[in-house]
Structures are given as C-alpha cells and as structure tokens.
Amino acid sequence: MASTLATSDPVAPTLGRQRRRKPHPLRRVVLPFVGVAVLIALWQLVCVVFDVPTYIIPRPTDVFSTLTSERSLILTHLQPTLLETIAGFLIGNGVAVVLAILFVHWRSAERALMPVAIFIRTIPIVAIAPVLVIMLGNGYAPKIVIAALISFFPTLVNMVKGLDAVDRQAMELMKVLSASRRETFFKVRMYASLPYLYASLKIATGNAVIGAIVAEWIGSQKGLGYLIIQSTYNYDTPLLYSVMVAASLIAVVFYALVEIAERLTVKWNPEETP
C-alpha cells in the first residue's frame, strides 16, 4: 500500500533526477538567475506596453518599491507565519518519522493506522482549516496544526518506503552478524531512509508555508495570510505581490536549508541501494 501511494507522490522522480550529470557550476548558478531576470523583464514589458492598471497587475518596479517601503509591516506579519511554518514542519514531520518507524517494526500498526492517515490526507486543507479554528481558537495552534497536517503525509509514506529500502543481502548480512533489530535500525535502515526523508522534507517546506498562510485566512489578525486577505480587499496589489514574494522567500530559504542538511548528511551515492 505504501509503495503504490509513494509512486503517486512527486518524490521518486527527485531521486531519479540525480542520475543526470551535473552541469558546469557556473551554469548551475547563473542560468536560474538569468531565467528569473528574463521573466521579470518580460512582466515589466507587458505591463508597460499594454498599460495594465496597477490594481490588476502591478509592475515589478511597483512591487519592489512596496517591498522596501512596507518592509516593517511585512516583517511584522512574516514573523508569526514563520513561527507557524517551522513549528508545523517540525511537528508534522516528527510525528510522521516516529509513526513510520513504528509501522516498519510493527506491521499491524501500519494496517490499522495507514487508512486513517490516508483519510486525513484526502480532506482538503481549506475545508479542515475552519474546523480547526473553531476547535482550537484563533491563536497559533490551528495554524501550526494545519502546517503539520500538510507536512505529515508525504513524509510518512516516504519514510516507510525508505526504511524498507534495504536490499535483501544487507539484511542477510545483518542476520549473519546476529545483529539485533535495534542495531539493524541504527546501522542500516536509518541511513537507507535518509534520501527518502529529505525528498519528502523538501516537499514539506513549501507545503508548510501554504498550510500556515491558508490557516491565517480564517479570522486571523496577523501573519502573511491575513495580509493577503487585507490587501486583496483593498485592491492593494503591490502589497499583495510583496507578500507573495515574502512567502515564497520563506519557502525557498527553508528548502535551501533542507538541501544543505542533505548534502552534509548524505555523502554517499543514494542511487546505490545498500
């Protein structure tokens, strides 16, 4: 069950993509920036040429000036969102990892709880957000729970898959060596699961930000989600776009941190199954 679900997640391709040869480092760094710069220039060009009103699409220059002028406002509202994202990310992934370890060592638990996890996943996050706000009040709690929920499922599925991604001969080796389950876990399974864990953590970075912001849409007085709702009502599109930039900045930095952690811990070639 776990494996079929995992293949439907956009995680397996991430592992496969590493097989491609790495391009020249200069290209790797420069080309993405060139792409973004061209896109922004095109955006500016379209706005100017077709004289698009600012309240429909602001020009990049408008967004940039708002980002600087409204810096303190954005930063004030960025803080709660950041906190909810990080807390939700840690809790959601933490619970997922613990559950996956439980599932791998106790298959009955997997059979009993996996359907529940799948059911939770099928509920749209926008539908569950109001329920949680009613249940948990208007503080940090519902936002953290939603960010955690959205991080939870991909990591659970991937972690179960990763902990099982140990080849038969490695398991036989551990048996020849009379290794205990604990030793097999800490010496083999844990390492085998790391590439899978990082793949899902990277997905969770973006998702946790989305979860926190969606939760803030509902009756919140602070956070980037609140700012999005406010600026939309006021047709303050430069501010709306600035908030979008800030939100994706959180996600990008977060993603980069996970990537760095991966490079520091996964030094072997994960293409080779142990």
């Binding site: 080849d167 001969q169 080796l173 290794a179 205990s180 097999t184 010496k187 996964v266 072997w268 142990p274």
Partner: peptide
Amino acid sequence: QDAALLPWRSVIDNVVLPLKVG
C-alpha cells in the same frame, strides 16, 4: 554476490562492522 557494503560507511568502517554489531 553484490558485496553488500553499507554505502554510508567508509571502507574501514565496513570491514569492522562485524565487530560493532551482534
């Protein structure tokens, strides 16, 4: 047949694995 080395352990750590477990 496939050597069954643990890819995250260095050569020397793979060799001494039997002294670390079981």
